[in-house]
């Protein structure tokens, strides 16, 4: 397979089309807009349905509608739009609807800025909307991984009948790189549970998120939590680089993990044994990656493009907050590898 030089958002959109996602509903917002634009452009030639919704509230609910029919559909947005979509995220989680949502994170709070950021970590990984629910969150660090997550996100969404969020950011969204795109290999099969009209199915389906008394609703919630436990058990993903002999391990995800890959090289050149753990699933958080360090003196340096959000999950996973330090950048500025190395040296001289 040959590689093509593509922008992150466009590569993701093309990969999603090749993975059989024929339905896109979205509202324009920087830095996600190339995804709806790509769908709009390709709609006639690829037989796609593209609807520009009036609000993100509607876009997310349209995605819920298409997901309820068992077809692959998605939307893409950024933080302000994701906040509006959270009502539907809660709904889709409760209704067990397999949808994919891209959040191209930008610095908040509120309108904020439009560059790279990781400020939506808590919103994405702790639910974000109302009630006890979780969505699977995948964080790509390159255009290749962004494109690869198109297929993975739909597979996970359908396997668990749960929404999946692809957490890219202003940097990964706009970055252009060589990328190998997936082949078209998706075959649609009707789902037994879907509301697509009986059309020969022997039973009718009823999708509802309305409780029928506290006992029923408690049972419903327990079942939902059991699903989340299964996902936590099975789907933790992460990458480790140079951790075998490391005295200090940097923990970073997404676009910032890319920078950290150079930081650990600089550290090694300067005689410091530094490694990297890169969480790939932000939820479920890859706690398993930290198990082997529980009874060691390994130090952790968590860096994020926010005021310190994932660091709390690292502290829980390491189970010793005194060995976990944090450095964050706000406003959309991505630190350089040297800046991070200097910070690391300040914290761990």
């Amino acid at each position: 397979m040959s590689k093509v030089f593509m922008q992150g958002n466009e590569a993701f959109a093309e990969a999603a089309i090749r993975c059989g996602c024929k339905y896109f509903f979205g509202y324009p917002i920087t830095p996600s807009s190339e995804i709806p634009e790509y769908y709009a452009k390709k709609a006639p030639s690829e037989d796609l349905t593209f609807v520009q919704a009036e609000t993100e509230v509607s876009a997310f609910n349209m995605v819920a509608g298409v997901a309820a029919t068992g077809k692959r559909g998605m939307t893409a947005t950024s933080g302000p739009g994701f906040s509006l979509g959270c009502e539907a995220m809660s709904y889709m989680s409760a209704a067990s609807l397999p949808a994919v949502i891209v959040d191209c994170m930008r610095p908040g709070p509120a309108d904020g800025e439009i560059l790279g950021s990781q400020g939506d970590y808590n919103q994405l990984t702790k639910g974000g909307g109302h009630g006890d629910y979780n969505t699977i969150v995948l964080a790509p660090y390159s255009v290749q991984e962004y494109a690869d997550f198109a297929s993975l996100s739909f597979e996970l969404a359908e396997k668990y009948r749960n929404p999946v969020v692809v957490a890219s950011d202003g940097t990964i969204a706009k970055l252009m790189e060589n990328v190998e795109l997936p082949k078209k290999n998706y075959e649609f099969k009707r789902s037994d549970w879907a509301c697509d009209g009986m059309n020969g199915r022997s039973h009718y389906n009823d999708i509802t998120t309305c409780g029928d008394g506290p006992e029923q609703w408690e049972h419903f919630n327990i079942t939902l939590q059991q699903k989340y436990q299964t996902i936590q058990q099975n789907e933790q993903r992460w990458e480790e680089i140079n951790t075998e002999d490391a005295d200090i391990i940097i923990v970073a995800f997404g676009s910032l993990a890319r920078v950290c890959m150079d930081t650990i090289k600089i550290a090694r050149e300067n005689g410091k044994k530094v490694g990297l753990i890169r969480p790939i699933t932000l939820w479920p958080f890859p706690e398993k990656a930290f198990e082997k360090y529980e009874k060691t003196n390994t130090k952790f340096f968590v860096t994020e493009l926010n005021a310190g959000q994932m660091v709390n999950d690292v502290k829980i996973a390491v189970n010793d907050k005194n060995r976990v330090e944090f450095y964050g950048k706000l406003g959309g500025i991505t630190p350089t590898p040297i800046e991070l190395y200097q910070k690391l040296c300040e914290i761990y001289p």
Binding site: Y23, N61, M62, A64, G65, V66, A68, G73, C195, D196
Partner: peptide
């Protein structure tokens, strides 16, 4: 969801 039936209907009818 409350008020969202036409949006959900859009997704279903388009599908």
């Amino acid at each position: 969801l409350h008020g969202r039936a036409p949006a959900m209907g859009t997704g279903i009818k388009r599908s």
